[in-house]
């Protein structure tokens, strides 16, 4: 899922301090799972902002809500009858949701309330780590189910590099060497021979290098 983290309060306050009617819009999707932007976080942010405005002697209305998914128009439409009550919206959805909300209500000022970070897993509560860079052409079949693009700091396709030591990446000892993980997995699977065949340069057009991407599924469209 998409992983995000709450933006620093100072930054949010700095964005919204000039407004007096604010809606904090959470999203029930990915950001709820990583506890960055669900209804709960929307309530906490709204309460904090109310305290901020009140202690500063300013009358401000700060309400909270959460939408099933901010990346879908049907759910964003749930705001249509009340969005005009607000001067600005702080969206706690991922970057997709924030943009789609802004796109749908194009006259409304929309601020981000989270920093959208990566596609990752929940290792445990409060510990999320990256697994996929959405390059658009999955090579996991060749690499023992471990992605070198997401998990090698240099996204090498023929690793591990000479900086791999003790199973750790040269960048920092908290990062497992992606290629060492691949090696161990291929060994377990009895597929080490894959190591000796050079992998040719990757076609990055399906990654962000091809420009903004789109999936058109004619089989699904009417």
């Amino acid at each position: 899922m998409i992983k995000a983290k709450p933006k620093p309060m100072e930054e949010i306050i700095d964005n919204v301090k000039g407004f007096s009617k604010l809606l904090i819009a959470g999203c029930d999707g990915c950001v709820t799972v990583c506890e960055a932007g669900g209804l709960k976080e929307a309530k906490v942010l709204a309460a904090a902002l109310r305290l901020y405005f009140t202690q500063g002697g300013k009358q401000a209305q700060v309400d909270e809500t959460s939408l099933t998914r901010q990346c879908e128009k049907e759910y964003l439409a749930q705001l249509s009858d009340r969005i005009d009550n607000y001067d600005a919206v702080v969206s706690l959805a991922c970057g997709c949701g924030i943009q789609y909300l802004a796109e749908m209500y194009d006259k409304k000022v929309v601020f981000p309330g989270v920093d959208t970070c990566f596609l990752g897993v929940n290792e445990e509560r409060g510990l999320y780590s990256e697994r996929c860079q959405a390059c658009g052409r999955c090579i996991l079949a060749e690499t023992g189910g471990i992605c070198p693009i997401a998990r090698c700091s240099k996204r090498m396709l023929n690793g591990p590099c000479g900086g791999s030591e003790g199973g750790k990446c040269e960048v920092n000892k908290d990062i497992p060497c992606g290629w060492e993980l691949i090696y161990e997995r291929l060994k377990t699977l009895g597929q080490l021979e894959r190591f000796e065949t050079p992998t040719v340069p990757k076609d990055w057009t399906t990654s962000r290098d091809g420009g903004p991407r789109k999936i058109v599924r004619e089989d699904l469209r009417i």
Binding site: K154, M156, L157, G159, E170, V171, P198, T199, V200, P201
Partner: peptide
């Protein structure tokens, strides 16, 4: 060569490229 990660250097905030790796550069 693939090169050290930019994290070591004097421009740690830069974008890196790594379009190819060292092996692919040799092939090229």
């Amino acid at each position: 060569l693939t090169g050290d990660h930019q994290h070591f250097g004097d421009h740690a905030t830069c974008a890196n490229v790594f379009d190819l790796d060292s092996t692919q550069l040799a092939m090229t």
